[in-house]
Design a protein around this nucleic acid. Sequence first.
DNA 1: CATGAATGAGGGTTCATTCAT
DNA 2: AATGAATGAACCCTCATTCAT
Lengths: 205, 205, 205, 205
Amino acid sequence: MRSENGSTGRSFVEVARRRQIIDAAIETVAERGYANASLAHIATTAGISKSVISYHFAGKEELLREVVTAVFDECGEAVGAALASCRTWTERLAATITGQLEYLRDHRTRWLAASEIVISHRDESGTPLYLQSGDEEIEGIVGILEAGRDAGEFGAFDVRIAALTVVHGLDGVLTEWQKDESLDLDDYGRRLVAFILRAVRPGAS
Amino acid sequence: MRSENGSTGRSFVEVARRRQIIDAAIETVAERGYANASLAHIATTAGISKSVISYHFAGKEELLREVVTAVFDECGEAVGAALASCRTWTERLAATITGQLEYLRDHRTRWLAASEIVISHRDESGTPLYLQSGDEEIEGIVGILEAGRDAGEFGAFDVRIAALTVVHGLDGVLTEWQKDESLDLDDYGRRLVAFILRAVRPGAS
Amino acid sequence: MRSENGSTGRSFVEVARRRQIIDAAIETVAERGYANASLAHIATTAGISKSVISYHFAGKEELLREVVTAVFDECGEAVGAALASCRTWTERLAATITGQLEYLRDHRTRWLAASEIVISHRDESGTPLYLQSGDEEIEGIVGILEAGRDAGEFGAFDVRIAALTVVHGLDGVLTEWQKDESLDLDDYGRRLVAFILRAVRPGAS
Amino acid sequence: MRSENGSTGRSFVEVARRRQIIDAAIETVAERGYANASLAHIATTAGISKSVISYHFAGKEELLREVVTAVFDECGEAVGAALASCRTWTERLAATITGQLEYLRDHRTRWLAASEIVISHRDESGTPLYLQSGDEEIEGIVGILEAGRDAGEFGAFDVRIAALTVVHGLDGVLTEWQKDESLDLDDYGRRLVAFILRAVRPGAS
DNA sequence: CATGAATGAGGGTTCATTCAT
DNA sequence: AATGAATGAACCCTCATTCAT
């Protein structure tokens, strides 16, 4: 049993190369857009030969999926860490929003690239990636909202609608940030949290 | 007195052909995605030769921009009509949401295509369309929210954040609908309106 | 017998239209070069529809040939007129050079276009036009040189070589003029005549 | 120490392929003319796929410029070699003519192609190549003529006019050779030299 | 482990020509 | 007499992928 690493059977060098290529792909997609991010451009960005990519990845498809997985996993971990120290459901709801915005703030390029790919890429059957991904994020927020409602922290409203509003509201931040580079994401987060908390606070519907 | 048309100098036949091509482009983009919507596919969908498109449009760029303009104008008119009969700012806010959802319900393909293009298409300088368009929609909602707040219908909150939440929340509906074809958009709209109204209602914070 | 014109059977309007198109072709070829002178550009220059050209000319081939014929005939007439008043063979040789340069000076665009076409255009068999044209010009100079030699005005040299040198030397003037717009063609002509006369003057060798 | 090549960073195989493609381009242009020399035809002539050309050259533009450079450099070297063994300016003038004619005799196709390209090709701004190139050849002849005049070998005449006459006279040889395949270039050269020497010989202007 | 080389498919665009009106 | 409309061929170029080395 070769156990240089986990269970993938990849050597240390191999893992490093893949990471390098993934990073180059992220940079390229973020800069030039999904449609203009050819393997040639990615290879140039990485400073390697084009066929190195083909050697380490089964194809462009796999590379792009790895980008998405890597970024979304990172972000998920960041949000998870932010959630760990929360005491109330209100705090957890706020942490979900601010946690993701903090990731976005610190890893804008990565998030931008992953978003582009999820939105634009389609598998060979023509199905977009964003229709293939699970709804863990939404389910997580739904869980927080339901628990908070049961605990009396939140009022009565459609939790799924609320969760979707939060998720898509977060997506919109990136656009705002692109339109206005000087946007203060921390401040934006506080105000977004405030607005969402208004919506979920107890009281007449 | 040549009165075949308005001020564009286009004949009736020309206008019809352009519309046909635009419709074919919409269908193709919605079905295959922006990146796979080649002129060849669009032509095939329209049942015409590839070069007919080049004859009627200066290029793919112009065709795509016309698609976006056509769809967004249509939707804007629909929402404008819905707003016309409103008495209160609350009604206007609700009508903005339901009006757009009704357009989306009745013209799903058109909206889908226009969204894809706005998100994915970049001009020759590499700037995406969604960063080029103005913010009329957001400004409109901001106006409603401010007026409603001044009229005492709404509470005190960051109107821009609120407007962005509404706009991006609407964008998210399409994704939900694609994931679940049986989604009742009218019902969804009522619940989304209810949630947003919770957020904007007067009261603490 | 409809005899509005000569023997071509073309009406006055028809002739005018053809001339208009020929002029537009000349202007376009001179400005954009043979390879970039499409019927579309020619039509735009003429301010007419593209298919008008096809209506009046059997094809692009015919149009281009007409351009060449028209310009070369004009130039030939100009040179012929210059020759008419000459008394000596030396004068005739000089008039051949200065006559053509005067045409060039006064009709630069026309000459430029015709030259481009003759050099670049090939018929459907692939034969360039410049290999199809007769050698009237060269023969004419050869005739002058032989007569002048027999009359004792010129020395003994290869008349064909001399004629070719004159003809191609004239071609080169256009290039010089393009490189230096301020070139004084009259002066250039005088100096070119002087040089050629040195070569043909009687004497050793 | 990587010493596969000089300073271009191209491997041996790469250089060979480029040469092969350049040769195929030369053959194609010479045979079909500049305007009909598509990359597809060049590829067919080379017996390779069309995209191989794009792989080895940045574009058609680069390929064509390489053709011109290669041929003109070759010819320049040949003429330079012929000049090296000359003692008098008269010999040098003659060697300039015969040297180029010898190159033309031995590499007719190459010269023909390069000439076609220089005359017909335009860069993206529309400027023809022949207006971009320097005048090294003309300057060289001018230098010979001036030195020869100062040395008393030649008479008094406009050296620039003379140089241009020589250069364009040489261009004309190719046309003559195309019209008459049986033309003896060596003989032609001797007679052309004789004619030019008549023109430059000392004596009254 | 890495890569230079090659390829065929497909991209958008321009073109000369035809045809019904 | 004129033209708007349409077409298919050909244009150059980019692409993801494969393969021998």
